[in-house]
Design a protein around this nucleic acid. Structure first.
Lengths: 243, 243
DNA sequence: AGCCGATCTGAGCGGAACTTGAGGATCACG
DNA sequence: CGTGATCCTCAAGTTCCGCTCAGATCGGCT
């Protein structure tokens, strides 16, 4: 049974490879998101039954790697990370991860969870994963359509012009900007930007979306998807044509 | 989307039923393992997409209930319990549970996990038995006959041309496209695309099918099966005649 | 405490989406 | 070929949902 391990820490990886090997897995070790996406391109070999994805990767955001994997393939993904906060958990699962395990974990439990998702993953013939370098998007500041989002400094600028945003506005934008083009459902937005489990009562979300639109002053950027949620419109066509 | 909740504490159950209901689940509440196993016997209704199983049941051991469920059905099971020790976790997962959540849990995370296993879980049942190798893709973009359905972006394109669809149209298409060739019954469609438990009164379904056909402009794609429902015609063969 | 910005709530509006009903077309079957 | 059932289309209603505004409440800061 083939398994793809995405982990940049050599020591952790070595230990996992050893244990997993003893338990009958044939492990391919990818040291970066880039390498992982490369490895998932179908090549005629037996496909991977599970991906073990560490979120603390050097080259790009682990969440982004997950959603890129998901965009092209149905392979089960287990996120393994030190980030134990609820927001990250929910976000990871909503991006399509099948399980989310926090460090430190028990090896036996991890194995049991791997088996659980592998059991379930009927591995449909996966569509080609988009080439990893097709849309280079680096870790750090997100950028699209002239908007620069600095997550660490919580600053946003449009065409160089600094735009002061409130907390909610920023969180909202940062969430939507994580995957431009993807529709975020209302409940999902509430559980990630507001405290989870919260039920939006009044017109809260709309009001914040409204003020965000006003401040950014980029008409058409934030699109409402009736009955579902919102999304950001990317500059370039988000659907890569198939060839 | 139907969900079976196995929980003996009335108050906990009531709270869960309320929240899950608001999130679009049609919840059946079983108060014991016995009742749960009863409920899972196929009865012609839409099957459960997920079982939420509390381990602290009065009449029998929750683990036993899980393995009995597993013996007779492939329905995804999430164990929800106060027993947080590693042994129990591993035991539960090895018995066939798809996930194991310990109390106290965060409601948002539980919802995310429910969605994760439901996504992954068994395909909806079909009138005609699908060819065994026609494995429907549960993940990633669906594609067939030049139609590309991107569920996370809620975008549909035909031969590269973007086709804007309304909510119902999209949900309808996404459902049918899950298993091209398979006939979906009217009731089934109503319970998946509309909030459950409504008997389609007027010509609602036909009208939506009509506008979907218009927008896709692919004559013969969506086929009505008289007295039963609708299906998508796949490009290649595998047209199971139906009566 | 008092201030001020941020957040939340409620009402009203407008438009998109959905539903309904009637009449015509089509199909299955005798 | 006739008949009833089922499906399709069209053109109204009707509901639902997102947007905006204005006022209330919250919460951090001095």
């Amino acid at each position: 049974m083939r398994l793809l391990l995405v982990e940049d820490d050599e020591r952790v990886a070595a230990a996992l490879v050893a244990v997993l090997g003893r338990h009958g897995f044939q492990v391919r070790h990818a040291r970066s998101g880039h390498e992982a996406l490369d490895a998932l391109v179908p090549d005629g070999n037996e496909p991977y039954r599970v991906v073990l994805l560490d979120l603390g990767l050097p080259d790009r955001d682990g969440f982004e790697v997950c959603s890129r994997i998901r965009a092209g393939s149905g392979v089960p993904v287990i996120m393994v990370t030190a980030r134990a906060d609820i927001r990250s958990r929910i976000h990871g699962l909503n991006l399509g991860a099948d399980d989310y395990v926090t460090k430190p974990y028990d090896m036996g439990e991890l194995l049991a969870r791997i088996h659980a998702v592998a059991r379930r993953g009927a591995q449909p013939p996966s569509v080609a994963v988009p080439a990893p370098d097709a849309v280079p998007q680096q870790r750090g500041p997100l950028e699209s359509r002239g908007i620069r989002i600095d997550r660490e400094r919580r600053r946003v600028s449009v065409d160089g012009r600094d735009v002061p945003l409130t907390r909610k506005e920023f969180d909202l934008l940062a969430l939507l900007a994580q995957s431009p083009g993807v529709v975020y459902r209302r409940e999902q937005i509430f559980s990630e930007v507001w405290r989870s489990g919260w039920e939006g009562n009044g017109r809260t979300l709309e009001v914040h979306i409204g003020s965000l639109r006003n401040k950014l002053a980029l008409p058409g950027l934030v699109e409402a998807v009736r009955g579902v949620g919102y999304r950001l419109i990317p500059d370039s066509p988000s659907a890569p044509a198939e060839h």
